[in-house]
Design a protein around this nucleic acid. Structure first.
Length: 205
DNA sequence: TGCCAGGCCCTCTTTAGGGCCTT
């Protein structure tokens, strides 16, 4: 499969539309089933972190105060990603912060496709009772990396999950390679249409 | 003062409601 970039944000809250901002970003680049590169940085967007978010992430206002400006970090992140398609767990969340933070830069970044390991996990492992990132990684026996709810630890876990999803689908449906577009198509389908997708995949391979 | 997102998915659904998931 072509290279992908797996992204995770820590933020001050759930909604950029409500004024929330990113506080940390981590990105891995995956090529041929291996993490080949990593990008990670705290960032200062000038927005105070609520106490309950600090409890969750461990990221404090003091840490942010000494971090580089969000604009600088996001410019570097966009350069790191380049034209790679993106992957995130509950990608709708990371996508809206990615777009909101990039929209503040004077230069526009190319729009990126976002694959979602949460949606794919629901399709591929419907028997799991929880599809939270940590729960899925634990259920699959994948390595947990560092403190959960820090950007690089979560990006690493999502990376392992992304690679496991590909291995599982290849093995289950007897195909050697999956394209990013195949997984994007799968995540858009309702669960009962997965067999249709698998049949089309087998015919195309 | 009190409130605060949004998209997906399931079902006791579809003229809707509520849980999950991200921080």
């Amino acid at each position: 499969m072509e290279a992908v970039a797996v992204l995770d944000f820590e933020t001050t809250g759930l909604s950029p539309a409500q004024g929330d901002r990113a506080t940390e970003i981590a990105i891995t680049r995956i090529q041929d089933g291996v993490v080949t590169d990593r990008f990670q940085s705290l960032m200062n967007a000038g927005r105070r972190i609520p106490a309950e978010i600090t409890v969750l992430t461990g990221i404090t206002n003091a840490m942010i105060a000494s971090a580089p400006p969000a604009s600088e970090v996001m410019r570097a992140a966009a350069n790191f990603v380049g034209d790679c398609p993106l992957v995130a767990h509950n990608a709708a969340f990371d996508r809206k912060f990615w777009l909101a933070e990039l929209a503040r830069l004077p230069v526009s970044a190319p729009p990126a496709d976002f694959a979602c390991t949460l949606l794919l996990s629901r399709r591929v492992y419907p028997q799991f009772s929880s599809h939270r990132l940590g729960a899925v990684v634990a259920a699959l026996g994948l390595p947990a990396a560092g403190r959960a709810h820090r950007a690089m630890a979560d990006a690493e876990m999502a990376s392992h999950l992304w690679m496991q999803l590909q291995r599982e689908l290849c093995e289950r449906y007897g195909v050697r390679h999956l394209q990013f577009a195949h997984l994007m198509a799968l995540q858009r389908l309702s669960r009962h249409r997965v067999p249709e997708w698998a049949k089309a995949l087998a015919l195309a391979s």
